[in-house]
């Protein structure tokens, strides 16, 4: 499984990476904002999942999500929001914009395991 982590916090990316490593996932790419995420997408094949933060500088997660879902070439990639944004309205907005699932921070390794079907 190949996965892209998009989160402006390097601490959060390290936590996600450790949890994924413990679940046997080691093919991991990282981006610090949506723009960096798009760059990695354009240069990487066979991504299965994106774990996507909402609040980031330069390009936030919802903008990134809409851009990715506007490009048919990326239709096969599952996008799981992983954000502290917790209101129902935000969850609905993300799902309507094409997110496949939603993890609210704080989260346990079990949430990652379940949502990524590991």
């Amino acid at each position: 499984m190949r996965i892209l982590l998009v989160d402006d916090s390097s601490t959060m990316r390290r936590i996600q990476k450790t949890q994924l490593n413990n679940l046997g996932v080691t093919d991991i790419f990282e981006a610090g904002n949506g723009e960096e995420g798009l760059e990695i997408l354009a240069n990487t094949t066979a991504l299965d999942y994106i774990l996507l933060d909402w609040n980031m500088p330069v390009m936030d997660g919802i903008t990134f999500l809409k851009k990715v879902r506007g490009n048919g070439a990326y239709a096969g990639i599952k996008i799981i929001m992983c954000t502290s944004e917790s209101e129902k309205t935000r969850v609905i907005e993300a799902l309507k914009s094409g997110a496949n699932d939603y993890i609210i921070k704080p989260f346990t390794p079990d949430a990652i395991k379940e949502k990524l079907k590991l």
Binding site: S9, S10, T11, M12, W54, N55, T83, S84, E85, S86, E87, K88, T89, I104, K105, P106
Partner: peptide
């Protein structure tokens, strides 16, 4: 610094669900 910022982000974002 990054870790403390993310802790603050999680607290604020999570609290919002009870202040919708």
């Amino acid at each position: 610094v990054d870790g403390i910022g993310e802790l603050a982000n999680i607290i604020a974002g999570n609290a919002k669900q009870d202040l919708s």
